[in-house]
Design a protein around this nucleic acid. Sequence first.
DNA 1: CTGAAAGCGCTTACAG
DNA 2: CTGAAAGCGCTTACAG
Lengths: 348, 348
Amino acid sequence: MAATIYDVARKAGVSTATVSKVLSNTPYVSTQTRAKVLAAVQDLSYVPNLAARSLSKARTFIVGLFIPYAADTVFADPHVLDLIRGIEEEVGSRGYSLLLSTAGDARQAPGRSGPRGAYADGAVLIAPSVLGLSAEDLGLRPDHCVVVGYHSPCGQGNTVHADDRAGAVMATEHLLHLGHDRIGVISATQPIAALERRLEGHRDALQAAGQRPDPQMVANGDFSLQSGYLAAQSLLALRPQPTAIFALNDRMAMGAMRLLKEQGLAIPADVTVVGFDDIPAAALFDPPLTTVRQPARLMGATAAQKLLSLIEGDGAPFDDVELPAQLMVRASSGPVSAVPESQGGAID
Amino acid sequence: MAATIYDVARKAGVSTATVSKVLSNTPYVSTQTRAKVLAAVQDLSYVPNLAARSLSKARTFIVGLFIPYAADTVFADPHVLDLIRGIEEEVGSRGYSLLLSTAGDARQAPGRSGPRGAYADGAVLIAPSVLGLSAEDLGLRPDHCVVVGYHSPCGQGNTVHADDRAGAVMATEHLLHLGHDRIGVISATQPIAALERRLEGHRDALQAAGQRPDPQMVANGDFSLQSGYLAAQSLLALRPQPTAIFALNDRMAMGAMRLLKEQGLAIPADVTVVGFDDIPAAALFDPPLTTVRQPARLMGATAAQKLLSLIEGDGAPFDDVELPAQLMVRASSGPVSAVPESQGGAID
DNA sequence: CTGAAAGCGCTTACAG
DNA sequence: CTGAAAGCGCTTACAG
């Protein structure tokens, strides 16, 4: 059996209380005593039992990360990864560990009847689509949870997200400046708040420039590359054809690019493509993709940081945090071609 | 305060022992009693305290995942992600939670003097380069740890990895069949066992075909795209120039492709490129990258599964598990061009 | 500066 | 089928 604090105490000739104090760096322990204890710890390769510690301190120093959709989706999305990275870094540097849970529904099993949240001192939820879940459903204290997204299942406030609307405005203005006036949009059918904000930003920018948003110019995918390919197909079937495609995430933008290449259309000479997210592959693409960068890592770090102050502070909710998006102009976007292939019908 | 098992017991009019039994689905509890208890649990929104449970059961149902290098590196590598995905899926489906720790050195902080491992029932280490770390250093039971890689810090056996050697053999034979006899290799300087196996496989395949491996044809990077670009540069400076480049990971292969394009060299018409890993971007590249696929997700799942049998079984070590690699032939590789640009000097 | 003792919230033989 | 009681390994006032 592993050594316990009793073994250490006995070996060092002190009480367990003293051992505990040494281990927690309490002042007021004599240098000699401290040395004796530390030596005993060494000798026995004593590692404190964290479950016991947690029980008596009523704190686990574990932070949960809930990603209530399938692991499949999560790990397919590089953007989510950066979020995780930001969270892990912040949490780790503050001495907490990260407990990862994908799949929202508590998967039943051996030792656990309750939901995974029960271990954690708090949790961040990456939850664009957490619909009906409450903090309680997850076994969480409602005042110790923050969500990356717009809608908190933990009550008011306590959310962090990028400025999706502004990002879409920037992308659209960029296209407008390049002379595009037939912009096809690839959105998705999922009811995700961030998506609505992006659509809204796009529409607003169009209207500000005196254009009328055309519902016909919006095709829907499901965030996957394949769906972007298909959506681009339906967009290209339109007459007049769009001169630019604004995909609401990078993977769909990449699908669109693939189709364009297959059709022998040059990017951006024939059609401009702009994405959203700035996943790592975006810069590596051919041509490199112009896209809106979400500060994913910062979003993660911010969420973690907010959570930790909730846990260590008084738990008073904070206001929604909106982080800036940034337009990354790369080679996939260019001015509308001087002599667009005539495609009939346009009178103006 | 949250409700405890005492509150539930009182409300249901039974003992805590009975509540515990109901919650753990012990048989021999009358239907009525069960119902009363469950109702009380409902009413009080009782969630068991997992720390207490862990303490008395001497099990946490948490599995650690140690990635002893910076979060930065980890999350930059899509391959590692698939590993994580495989682990999370397996572990989750068996009712365990995953505790993520990057950065090997125990980051000190608030509640924890010991290393993060102390919480877990066992752990998987993704550790191509865990050099001096022992299980004890991580606070782990040595018989409850498995490593993804070749060298276990936990004693003999208990490792899982892909057949890196065979993968490199396949890639090299593929190049040989295409007629390439001047194959430049982009390796890396890090002392990683998998890398050595790949180099070894490459050399063996060359020799089996009657070619002599030429140390000049090996340039080193550091796994990053940039380093692949640079290494390709030095390879192209060679005379005679290589007709093919075999990069020992995909990101470096992509760097090489970037350089080739910049130099106006066609892929694969002028130079063939082959990678290793099959990260998601590989298939999306232009041209799509021929590469060796490691079954990362399966490797993760296998590691997790082995770990769980260690935890739930008798802890007897298992033999190293070697999973098959697979050559994914795509458009970046092609036959050596019919009339290679004469570049003087060759006598044979 | 140090220690005795209670308590954290569960589970588990053991009796009944 | 049910319950009393001890125990899991720590921490924390409280005394001294």
